[in-house]
C-alpha cells in the first residue's frame, strides 16, 4: 500500500504537519485516536496521534516533532511522495460528550494533539479554555487554529519571549485561583508536564485526562510494549487508552519505560539506514 502526502507544512524548526491520504481512517477517526506509520521497508512502526481529519477529502493530518531517527527521516519525505504504511484509527476516542467547561492543556508538540480535542469540545458547545506552553516564542504553533476553537487561549513561554512567562501549570493555577471551575482538565504533552498538571489538579479535585504515547509496535494489543500502570493495574495504551485518568498513572514507571530504547535510538541515528537521496520505490526494490 502507499499513502500519499497531500500537504506538508513546517510549523516551526522542529515541528511539521503532514496531511496524508487515508480515506478509510478519515471515515472513522475521532479525537484522541492515533495511527501507526512506517516510512518504508526499513522503517520502524511508530504511532502518531491524529491531529485532524477530513472525512470528505479522505485525509488524516499528523503533526510531527523531530526527536529521533524516524521523525528525522519523515521530515525528508516531501509533499507528493508516499508513506508505505499508515494504519488506524487505533485506540479509544477521548470521551468528550457531556462536558460543559474544560481546560485543554498542550505542552509543545502536545498542542497539536490537544487541538482536535478542543475543536470537538467547541463543536459540542462546551466552554473551552486552551493553555499551551512552549520554550520560546519561535516555537509557538497552531495559535490561530486554537483561537478559533476556544473561548480563551493562553499561550505561555518558558523564557517569557512572547510576553507571558511561565509554565502551563502556572497558568492553570492562576485560572483556577481566579475562580474558574472546570469539569475536567485534558492534558497532553511531555510526561513530566502531564505529571505536574495532575499533581496540581489533584489538589483542586478536578478530574484529569492525560494522553500516553509509549513505544509500541502493532497498536492493536499484540505486543504489550505499551504497558502503563494505572491504579496499580497494567493497561495497554494502544487498546485501553491512549487516554487515562491522570491521577492514577504511575508516572515514575512510565518515565523509566520511556527510556528503554534510548541508547538504540542514538545508535540508529548515528549508523542507521540512510534514506537521504533515496525514494520509497528504490527501497521496495531491495525489500
Amino acid at each position: 500500500m502507499a499513502y500519499k502526502i497531500v500537504k506538508k507544512k513546517v510549523l516551526n524548526p522542529q515541528i511539521f504537519l503532514m496531511e496524508v491520504e487515508a480515506p478509510l481512517i478519515a471515515k472513522k477517526a475521532e479525537p484522541g485516536q492515533f495511527i501507526i506509520l512506517r516510512i518504508d521497508e526499513y522503517g520502524e512502526r511508530v504511532p502518531f496521534t491524529i491531529a485532524d481529519f477530513d472525512r470528505e477529502k479522505g485525509t488524516v493530518t499528523i503533526i510531527v516533532q523531530i526527536v529521533g531517527k524516524t521523525t528525522k527521516d519523515l521530515a525528508e519525505v516531501e509533499e507528493g511522495a508516499a508513506l508505505l504504511d499508515f494504519a488506524g484509527p487505533l485506540g479509544m476516542p477521548t470521551p468528550l460528550e457531556g462536558l460543559k467547561k474544560v481546560a485543554v492543556i498542550g505542552g509543545g508538540l502536545g498542542t497539536a494533539i490537544a487541538y482536535p480535542q478542543a475543536k470537538k469540545l467547541h463543536s459540542l458547545g462546551a466552554d473551552v479554555t486552551v493553555i499551551t506552553g512552549f520554550r520560546n516564542k519561535d516555537l509557538i504553533i497552531l495559535e490561530d487554529e486554537l483561537k478559533a476553537v476556544s473561548n480563551k487561549l493562553i499561550v505561555a513561554t518558558d523564557d517569557g519571549s512572547n510576553g507571558n512567562q511561565g509554565f502551563v501549570t502556572d497558568m492553570l493555577k492562576k485560572e483556577i485561583e481566579s475562580g474558574e471551575r472546570y469539569d475536567e482538565v485534558i492534558a497532553i504533552g511531555p510526561l513530566v508536564m502531564m505529571k505536574f498538571v495532575c499533581k496540581l489538579t489533584e489538589q483542586y479535585d478536578i478530574p484529569t485526562t492525560v494522553s500516553m504515547n509509549p513505544v509500541m509496535i502493532d497498536g492493536t494489543g499484540m505486543c504489550g510494549g505499551c504497558r502503563v500502570t494505572v491504579g496499580g493495574e497494567t493497561k495497554f495504551a494502544c487498546v485501553d487508552g491512549p487516554d487515562f485518568d491522570g491521577h492514577k498513572i504511575d508516572w515514575d514507571s512510565a518515565m523509566k519505560r520511556g527510556r528503554m530504547f534510548a541508547d538504540y535510538e542514538k545508535r540508529s541515528c548515528e549508523e542507521g539506514h540512510c534514506r537521504i537521496g533515496r525514494t520509497n520505490k528504490e527501497d521496495q526494490k531491495y525489500a
Partner: peptide, 24 residues
Amino acid sequence: YSANEFLTRINLMKGYKFPEYDTP
C-alpha cells in the same frame, strides 16, 4: 518483554538486522 513483542521485533521488523533496519 512479551514473547509477541520480542519475536515481532526480530521477525516482522527484522530487528536482528538493526541498525540496517530501524527497529531495535
